[in-house]
Amino acid sequence: MAKLLPAAGVLLIADPFLKDPNFMRTVVFLCEHQDEGSFGFVLNRQYDFTLDQLMASAEGMPITVYYGGPVQMDTIHFLHQFPDKIPGGFEVTDGIYWGGDFETAVSLLKSGDIEVSGIRFFIGYSGWAEGQLQGELKEKSWITSRGTSKLIFHEDFNAIWKDALLELGGDYEQLVNYPIDPQLN
Rank of each mutant, 00 (worst) to 15 (best):
C31M: 09
C31A: 13
H33R: 01
D35W: 03
E36K: 14
G37H: 07
G37I: 03
S38L: 05
F39D: 09
G40Y: 01
G40R: 03
F41V: 06
V42A: 04
V42Q: 02
N44Q: 11
R45F: 08
D48Q: 14
D48L: 01
D48Y: 14
F49K: 15
T50S: 14
L51N: 02
L51E: 10
L51K: 05
Q53E: 15
L54E: 12
A56K: 13
A56N: 11
S57H: 08
S57T: 11
G60K: 03
M61R: 07
M61W: 07
I63K: 06
V65Y: 04
V65D: 03
Q72T: 10
Q72F: 12
D74F: 11
H77T: 01
H80N: 13
Q81D: 06
D84W: 01
K85T: 08
K85S: 13
I96T: 01
I96A: 04
F102M: 15
F102W: 07
T104N: 08
T104P: 02
V106E: 09
L108A: 10
G112D: 07
D113S: 15
I114M: 12
V116W: 06
S117P: 06
S117L: 12
S117M: 08
I119A: 06
I119M: 12
I119T: 02
R120S: 10
F121M: 03
F121N: 03
F122D: 04
F122G: 04
F122Y: 12
F122C: 09
F122I: 08
I123W: 02
G124S: 11
Y125A: 07
Y125H: 11
S126E: 06
S126G: 05
G127M: 06
W128T: 00
A129R: 12
E130L: 00
Q134D: 15
Q134R: 11
E136S: 03
K138I: 09
E139L: 12
E139W: 00
K140L: 11
S141W: 07
S141G: 11
W142V: 03
W142Q: 08
G147K: 07
T148R: 00
S149F: 00
S149L: 01
L151N: 08
F153Y: 03
F153C: 04
F153M: 06
H154V: 03
F157Q: 11
I160M: 07
A164D: 06
L165S: 05
L166S: 02
E167W: 11
G169H: 07
G170Y: 11
Y172N: 12
L175Q: 13
V176T: 14
